[in-house]
Design a protein around this nucleic acid. Structure first.
Lengths: 224, 224
DNA sequence: GGATCAAATATCCTATAGGATTGCCGGACG
DNA sequence: CGTCCGGCAATCCTATAGGATATTTGATCC
């Protein structure tokens, strides 16, 4: 028995340890994480050579990862000039993003209240805690909260769309080192409570109010 | 004839890529068109080598194009096995797709009725004509119809999401060589009429009914 | 001092060769 | 007859070299 098999057998389902999903995927996640942590700030040029040297891999997986990031709107490519991280959202983009969220996410919350699996329901209770000391801690909790609800609706398209947009919200919020909003935690709890009691209408309303409030908090940072 | 065209002609058939302005983008559109025209049917393996030889370009732009297609859900990659076009939608995916459209597209129609530019309004009248003899002609008209309305709402995120999903609808419909639905043209006209008279509520209702009917027509082809 | 043009640099884009890994096919063995 | 095992083919992944282009820099001229 190889070491990998032993580790997999020890951890149970081997779907997480044995991940031969390809090097490009790994590079993709790494660069995406660097963008989300502002290690690569918005509107910053990223060169294929530098990344290849820094990550110790060839140029090919770097190119594939950057192409996927481009398709997801996190970087842009200019011919014969190179890649650059997407510029920070302006007012118009923020408006569009929240119009979309306000349209989709309350619906997802309603469906989650009606059809969410019990296991996800338990996980949802785990992110309800008020223990979110650091900024990154709150951000991760917020990401998990919205991801669970989006997935709870059972529609992969909705979940993927919201996850893709949430990355941009995360970057925007990190740019301004936004204070941890105590209100947001309470709004989250209201949504969770409605979902746990299987009240679709209440969940939809609570989620709508949460997004509207969140929009108001973020909009203050921009004056374009 | 330019030097580039001469070199291309010397190397093989004229179906090659000759424009040196973003080769990966060009390859991306070519492969996407091949998928939409069923020249590459669903669940078909596509190899980097074959495409490189067929299009007369190197492997690198092929890889970039396939990575973008993978990010858009049109192909999938298995490690050390190769790329393959996405399998045909099953019942569950069709349900999810139309749930999403039903959620987003009527809203887009309402906003289009309220805010669409006059130039796009004129273009919208152009696709209203009953002259859609061929199957491809109707498909193009349908694509243009939904694209104009999605863009008319003024929200790029909504427009992009709907465009991405519409590709899958197009593939699904092409798979079954669906007859041209006379009803669809009438439903389109109803939406257009509501938008031209700037009646947001009527446009939203007409679009909702159109999508529901369209869903019913497509659902008949699947019995999983 | 400001503007213009040309050379230099950095980067991307392409092409080709070679190593590594997976899935498949045919034959041997129980 | 079923199962296991080893070679074969296909494919991906990496590395390197060379051509093409945009950006920058510096010198020159007005």
């Amino acid at each position: 028995m190889s070491a990998i098999e032993a580790a997999a057998a020890k951890q149970g389902p081997p779907s997480q340890i044995a991940r031969p999903s390809g090097l490009a995927e790994e590079v993709y996640r790494r660069i995406r994480a660097d963008i989300m942590s502002l290690r690569l700030p918005p509107d910053t040029r990223v060169s294929v050579d530098s990344l290849a040297r820094e990550l110790g891999v060839s140029q090919t997986p770097i190119r594939e990862a950057l192409s996927m990031l481009e398709a997801n709107g996190l970087v842009s490519k200019k011919h014969f000039t190179g890649y650059a991280t997407a510029p920070r959202m302006d007012r118009a983009q923020l408006d569009e993003l929240f119009e979309f969220r306000l349209l989709v996410e309350p619906h997802a919350a309603r469906k989650a209240a009606e059809a969410m699996a019990q296991s996800d329901m338990d996980s949802l209770g785990a992110v309800s805690g008020a223990h979110a000391p650091s900024h990154d801690g709150f951000a991760d909790m917020d990401t998990e909260f919205h991801k669970l609800i989006a997935q709870g609706g059972g529609n992969h398209l909705i979940a993927d769309s919201l996850a893709r947009l949430h990355i941009h919200v995360h970057i925007f919020r990190s740019c301004f080192r936004s204070e941890i909003a105590e209100e947001a935690v309470h709004e989250h709890d209201a949504v969770i409570k409605a979902i746990r009691s299987r009240d679709g209408a209440a969940a939809e309303a609570a989620m709508r109010r949460h997004i509207e409030r969140s929009y108001g908090r973020l909009r203050d940072f921009i004056r374009d």
